[in-house]
Amino acid sequence: MLDNFINHLPEKVRSTDDFDYGTKFRKKSNALKRRYVEVNQLYKKYIALDLDEPGSAYWWEEKNLPPPTIVIVNPRNARCHYLYELKTPVYYTEEARRAPQKFYESIDSALTTVLKADLGYVGLFVKNPLHESWRVIKHNAIYDLEDFNEYIDLQYYKNKQKYEASLEGRNTTLFHNLRHWAYKEVKQHGSYITFQSAVDDQALSINKMFLAYSNGVLAAKEALSVAKSVGKWTWKHRYTIGNGTKNRGVLANQIDETMDLHARQSLGAKYSHTVRTEKVDDKIKLAIHKCKERGLVVNPGNLEKCGLADSTYRKYKEATHNWIRILA
């Protein structure tokens, strides 16, 4: 179980011993000496929950839920983190489908509700199960998302969330405030990852406004679910948003009607190259992550097994090796 946890981490991991002193990217071997580590956010291998109540290590049993793969307990106050390991990680890259993400988020939200876990926890940093500060309970259990349907009624929790949201309009308020902000913000970013990170931060910031509502703030993970939907849609349509006239996308503010045909074609070619490069980068990164997930050495042969065509590797060899150095 712990080997799987180690293998899912990238080679550079944000970690800390004390959040008051900030976090820092470190090599995996060094990061694993710290008390807290950041779980991989590009592909979700774990559902992470924070149980703030003392003596909660076995609440899963009391609630008739399946055992967490790893329970990490603070011996000083008996509070803990639950980690449910997934057989197939849920990808959060630009080209990843939204449907599996929503399924993952629904399971996460339902488990949070049933276990009365911390609503403000976003699943970013977890107690490092290899650190001597914590006590660790392991169960030989890895799950498909569908497995949780046997233990929780997802439809009940979805209806409950919709009902509670309708009482105060928090979801609607968050969605509309966030999308209008995102339409302008997207122009400031050159990659989906940095843009989505900014949208996530803004969603959490807007969510704080609901402290004055009778039902309080939305669960942080619920706010982030709205952020993912807004971020993904806005990024996909970033070249057409706000264009009331002829659609020239990102070039709308750059094309001068007095330009000759050759100049317009040249500008369009540069833009097409940028978009194509971004898409290729995403394919390379996804293949690298799949290699790591399967425990394969990251080399051309294994990258091809994980979805990166050999022709793409040969054409973008330098870019591929740059990403390997960064991610693997």
Rank of each mutant, 00 (worst) to 15 (best):
K102R: 12
L119I: 00
D118R: 05
D118P: 07
L115K: 00
G120C: 04
K102S: 10
D108G: 11
A110C: 12
I107H: 08
L111C: 11
G120Y: 07
L115P: 01
A96N: 12
I107K: 05
K116N: 10
T112V: 01
E105D: 08
V114L: 07
Q101W: 11
R98Y: 05
K102D: 15
D118I: 02
L111K: 04
I107Y: 07
E95L: 09
G120E: 11
G123I: 03
V114F: 02
K102V: 06
L111P: 04
A96V: 06
Q101Y: 13
Y104V: 06
K116M: 10
G120T: 00
L119H: 06
F103P: 01
Q101G: 06
L115Q: 04
E95K: 14
D108C: 14
V122F: 01
F103S: 11
A96Y: 07
V114W: 08
A117S: 10
L111R: 07
K102P: 00
E94C: 13
D108H: 15
A96P: 08
K102H: 09
V122D: 13
F103E: 15
V114G: 07
V122W: 04
G123R: 02
L119T: 02
V114T: 02
A96G: 07
E94N: 14
T112N: 14
E94P: 00
K116G: 04
V114E: 04
Q101N: 06
Y104R: 05
F103R: 09
I107R: 06
V114I: 13
F103A: 09
F103W: 01
E105I: 02
T112G: 11
E94I: 07
E94G: 11
A117T: 10
A96L: 07
T112A: 07
F103I: 14
A117D: 01
Q101P: 03
R98M: 15
A117V: 02
T113W: 02
Q101K: 09
E105M: 09
K116E: 09
Y104F: 15
A117G: 12
S106F: 03
D108S: 15
